[in-house]
Design a protein around this nucleic acid. Structure first.
Lengths: 348, 348
DNA sequence: TGTTAGCACTCACTTTTATCGAGTGCTAAT
DNA sequence: ATTAGCACTCGATAAAAGTGAGTGCTAACA
């Protein structure tokens, strides 16, 4: 049986209608709403074929048809039309990125929020990761009479602060000097490189302050581990409640539970191995609680070559075209803002 | 009509049963389950009185009774028994606090998570706030060939990092010196103190790097504003779905929407003006979508005198006794860990 | 006078039955 | 190949009937 033009037109009509209404689409509806110049009976015959081919499903005998995962797949691969973002949407995304570009964690958080707001779907973002991150900067700054600020940064510019409580804070110059020495010792190390010998050397350098060593080491370790752990930001999960496919509270709950497991999200995002946009439809992801969901992912590159992944999750009946355009817009934005930052540097 | 002992016993039975089952409690249930030594008919008479007094409500004519807000109020003020945390619960909380005590934002986030996990309710936490925060530390550190790390801290030890992109990073010593000078200029200023004159001075100091000034100022401003803005952490909102009072998806959605508005949360937490534990029952908070919810708040003090608020939100039918003990345990924990930190310093 | 057994009554909830209508598949005519 | 026509299916909605937990009232009892 051939998938001729007319069948495709009908399939497209079914998908469009179902995306818009979430109701099974009948032959008469198509005949009336979409002027294909054929009668409902003819449409019925074609629909029967489409069902046989696996592109649409009849939920029960006297209902209209809904697209199957395979139907959506065809739609996404061959039928879907690219849509451009509206100017104001573009602007909105851009302003969010520009406002947060200097702090990766805020950028992720705010970007996720912005995308959820724009699409009404759920957004997942993973931060760029550096494996076996080497320490790059370790510094001490005085804060107040009992606190020292420890700043640690790893390659990939993952930065973290820790406040160390001490009884006596060394005088400023002395503290800087201490920081510089610690930095010299630890710079370039990964967390695994820090052995007894190095700890010994540190202890020697710290002298009367050696009691802060455990806190210091633990802070350094936390930073290093943090840089290696993939951070995932989730936003707009509550949007799920708005979709009729989750008006059953049990389903909603089980999806929420799934989304709470960070590892699951990471796995989901990791599916995207190349840089292209990737669309996972329905049970293409292997999670029971997400069999009625689709996830669209794409990667973005920060200036330094590290890459993260953005994913948008919605019902299989999601507006693929919109989501794709928002994701494209977002990635372009991040790149643009980074480029603009570079220009700025050159200009001045 | 007097609220004699027997009435109180019956009220207590109703509340206990309703908290456990979420089903209206009938006279026969009480007669059978709680051995009060009186018949269901007598209980019926007493219940009729309790209803007249406003402590219980009959949802409809042929149903049992449920506690009214007033009933819960009486329970909370006079009947509720203090419960001690189990050893393992105590330990769990303590480990969370100990692990995160050095970073206020993580502490809040993780504490919120821990409490939600322990209670199965929703947790809100606001961070300590400093009004008109003065800048305390501004430093520059080299990160890589195109990035400078700007560390800013305000009074109250609110610390933030920003990465500034530049075309040429000054040599390390030079950069420190720059940082030191900027610090000298800005130290002690609030964000409002930074006027044209100061900007001019900064510009002079920065010389060929003056193009980073906008980014630097914006970063400083962000930090200062951040210190002034109340940060609120919300955790375990999805727990709400588990309660039968929110099995109606509309209600759940509207509560979720309310919880998404940060200002609402802040207002809620701000209700707690003194340091004592405060219990807001049902419509005592004036939010329509939360009229079936209670919020229990308490404040915690960080070492430096700043204070934040922890709130637990659940259905009015929540386990007040458990929540109170968890909150007490948590506050005690934070204090203990802080004290332990101080001891540690002295010992060494 | 307080307590209790007994009983009629109420009303949400469940089950059953009936009705409706959107949508299909098949057949026969065009 | 297309389509009008029609019998048929079956979920959804509505109406009717039945069930039972729980009440309030009354009258008897200690």
């Amino acid at each position: 049986m051939a998938l001729n033009d007319r069948k495709i037109q009908i399939l497209q009509a079914i998908i469009n209608d179902y995306i818009a209404t979430a109701e099974p689409v009948g032959s008469r509806t198509i005949a009336k709403k979409y002027n294909l110049g054929i009668s409902s009976a003819t449409i019925r015959n074609e629909m029967s074929d489409l069902e046989e081919m696996g592109f649409i499903i009849q939920p029960h005998a006297s209902a209209g048809r809904i697209p199957s995962d395979l139907g959506y797949r065809l739609y996404v691969d061959r039928l879907m039309q690219k849509r451009e973002l509206k100017e104001e949407e573009q602007q909105f995304l851009q302003s969010v990125v520009a406002r947060n570009i200097s702090q990766i964690d805020y950028l992720m958080e705010e970007t996720a929020k912005a995308i959820s707001m724009l699409t009404n779907y759920t957004t997942l973002i993973s931060e760029p990761v550096s494996k076996g991150a080497k320490l790059k900067q370790i510094r001490l700054l005085p804060l107040d009479s009992e606190s020292i600020l420890l700043v640690t940064a790893t390659e990939g510019n993952y930065v973290k602060n820790h406040i160390l409580k001490v009884s006596v804070v060394p005088e400023e110059e002395k503290l800087f000097e201490l920081g510089r020495e610690i930095n010299a010792i630890l710079k370039g190390c990964t967390i695994n490189d820090i052995d007894q010998r190095i700890v010994g050397v540190l202890k020697g350098k710290l002298q009367e302050y050696s009691y802060i060593l455990p806190a210091l080491l633990s802070a350094v370790e936390q930073t290093a581990r943090g840089a290696e752990n993939i951070q995932v930001h989730l936003s707009g999960a509550k949007n799920i409640l708005a979709f009729p496919e989750f008006s059953d509270i049990q389903r909603a709950k089980s999806l929420f539970q799934t989304l709470e497991q960070k590892e699951v999200l990471v796995t989901l995002l990791k599916e995207n191995k190349d840089d292209a946009m990737q669309i996972m439809i329905g049970s293409e992801n292997n999670l029971q609680s997400m069999k009625d969901c689709s996830v669209i992912t794409t990667t973005y590159k920060m200036g330094d070559g590290t890459r993260g992944t953005i994913g948008i999750l919605g019902p299989t009946r999601m507006d693929y075209s919109q989501v794709v355009s928002v994701l494209n817009g977002m990635v372009k934005n991040i790149e643009n803002v980074l480029k603009a930052l570079k220009e700025e540097k050159k200009d001045s």
